[in-house]
Design a protein around this nucleic acid. Structure first.
Lengths: 178, 178
DNA sequence: GGAAGATACCTTGTATCCGAGGTATCAAGG
DNA sequence: CCTTGATACCTCGGATACAAGGTATCTTCC
């Protein structure tokens, strides 16, 4: 699983707690299963951007374990920015799996069942649109419709993923609405 | 499903047939479920790059349906480049889902069961490595270990996807080896 | 024959991320 | 004290992709 959309993940992790860059990197790596830790060249410029945008502040702390750390905290604007992005995600955050899963990891921060349900409904609407990957015109495709085993596998995996997510979405929406 | 790694997909689609850019774009859109058609600003510069690298040739064909087309054909070097990338994929093509799924879509072109099995085994090795997303030390995680329903969903979806792929990998490897 | 619409291609600018290659701090061991 | 290793941060260059905006061709329909 590699699906981090880093800016949202940074705001999401810092919403709860203060972290320094190195720690944040480990949180992100843990969330993605340590597959491919985020590169320094991605992380540190991002933190500078977020600081310049007034979304977080950095405080230099003399080294306790090793080198001095920059302890990161979200500003009020940073906290609001996260909530805004969770509440009204851009279309890409609903349709692109990487971005959607990243959003899901932090949707708890929204702390408003109705708003959370609205976000899930957007995803549900998207997932239930007939996609050419699964349909040949009106006819649902089956794995056996593909002639090579690798395309069959692709189809099988995609179908299982989508079905699992749909089931979960419907159950969770029932809980949130109920 | 959006998971195109465009350069490989281009070589993969052109391995079978001659296409022009606009057609290629539609093939790619169909493979990803028409979610987000590839942007012109991605496709046409890519085709130029591949042509400059000697992997494909373009032949101008006076317009039959509308504007004139550039019919694309892989060169011998282009065909070999695809086979090389399928046979010995870079690590990222095994660990990153987008790239891996793109590779799977064209693995049939390799046309060598032993080499195909070797590629699947690399994926199997990667997927069976204990990942922190699924394990807390030695203990396998469960959805119930997460306190918010959205992280639970994420875990449920990831687990289902991984399990489905593992099952398929083992079955397909048995077929290829047998 | 002129407008509309689909087809077909192209350029420029931007966003997001990685990789390589640095610098600096502090603890532990020889 | 000096090296090693872990921690911690930074910069530069490049890869991959999108978005906006443009040009041109050909068919269809009025």
């Amino acid at each position: 699983m590699i699906w981090i959309m880093l800016e949202l993940a940074t705001l999401g992790f810092l919403y709860d707690e203060q972290l320094h860059g190195y720690d944040l990197r480990k949180r992100i790596a843990a969330l993605t299963g340590h597959v491919r830790p985020i590169a320094d060249g991605t992380l540190y410029p991002l933190l500078k951007r977020l600081e310049a945008a007034g979304l977080l502040t950095r405080e230099l702390q003399p080294g306790q374990v090793a080198a001095p750390r920059h302890v990161l905290s979200l500003t009020a604007a940073g906290r609001q920015a996260l909530l805004d992005r969770l509440r009204e995600p851009d279309e890409l955050f609903v349709t692109d799996e990487n971005r959607w899963f990243t959003l899901l990891a932090f949707l708890r921060h929204l702390d408003d069942p109705a708003a959370q349900a609205a976000v899930l409904r957007r995803r549900l609407t998207f997932l239930t649109q007939p996609a050419s990957f699964f349909w040949d015109g009106d006819r649902p495709l089956r794995a056996a419709d593909f002639d090579d085993p690798f395309r069959q596998g692709l189809f099988t995996i995609a179908t299982a993923t989508t079905r699992t997510e749909l089931t979960w979405l419907r159950e969770t929406l029932a809980d949130l609405d109920g």
